[in-house]
Design a protein around this nucleic acid. Structure first.
Lengths: 156, 156
DNA sequence: GAAGAAATGTTATGCTATATAACAATTGAG
DNA sequence: CTCAATTGTTATATAGCATAACATTTCTTC
């Protein structure tokens, strides 16, 4: 099919001028690219973010991870279970609060995070190539503003 | 909690400087706002986009809807089933191609779409207020570029 | 026109992400 | 001390997305 499909491109009903729709499409594209870049590594975006936060904050509790990444406590359990049985994360009983666990990366976890970070850098570089450094900066600024839509809910 | 949380904000490991992570967070915030704006209407983002496309292209086949919205044929079946049992969409057997269905909005479907579009307008206005008209335009442009990451896969 | 390839809608199935409710153990506040 | 809140956990449900297989129908190619 030659470029500039002349036939009957379905009318998208201006969906492509709406922020929500385009956000979803862009996110799918970016996640797919992220995943494609992670050759060899088995980390999916969610696992990657969890590993990264634990790596930066050794001894963090699960509840803290949840508030940082906006996850539900109940959902993090299985995620940590998986990372633990992959040998990447270790739960350690806290001695100051016997309810909570202190999370640490195992040596394998640190290596995995390191490898993922390098591929992530490639991935981001590809995005920078596409948007330009200023375009990317501007994009991040707008996205940060959009996140404030969610914060409108008071702590209730 | 006063602004500028002074305690110990968990280190996000620069995740908030990465396009993928921020895209996901922004999308969650925007979808939540979309949903909040749809008081009374029962349409979720996916259903809304399907209704909108059918509204603009009466008689469209399911396959065409799928390519337009990047859905899988198998997944659209249940979606149309639901919209049909809500009385919003009607499947009509095509007479020129006995494999395919021609999709139409029922009168109720047109009203629902109309109502959803109005609330969508409010929703977009709120976003415009947050980003500014130029900011929003710039955002849409960058998001469109990002979508090209996905198109890299040739037709195979 | 006949044979093989492709498209269409469908069912079945699985996985991931996300959400809520309930619970026991522990900690904190009054 | 008593009651409320926090933490990790289990169970459960839903939405979104993916693949494989299938029957019917259409298209292609000879």
């Amino acid at each position: 099919m030659p470029p500039g499909q002349s036939i009957a491109a379905t009318d998208l009903a201006n969906l492509d001028r709406q922020v929500g729709y385009m956000l979803r499409q862009a996110q799918l594209a970016v996640f797919a690219d992220f995943f494609a870049k992670q050759r060899g590594a088995v980390l999916r975006p969610g696992q990657f973010s969890i590993l990264a936060v634990i790596g930066r904050n050794p001894g963090l509790s699960q509840a803290k991870v949840c508030t940082a990444l906006r996850l539900k406590r109940a959902n993090l359990v299985a995620a940590i279970d998986a990372l633990e049985s992959l040998g990447l994360v270790r739960r350690e009983a806290s001695m100051t609060d016997r309810r909570s666990n202190r999370l640490h990366l195992t040596p394998a976890g640190q290596r995995a995070l390191q490898a993922a970070l390098e591929m992530q850098t490639e991935h981001e570089a590809r995005i920078t190539l596409l948007l330009g450094i200023n375009g990317k900066r501007a994009l991040l600024r707008q996205l940060a503003k959009l996140c404030e839509l969610g914060k409108t809910r008071s702590s209730s």
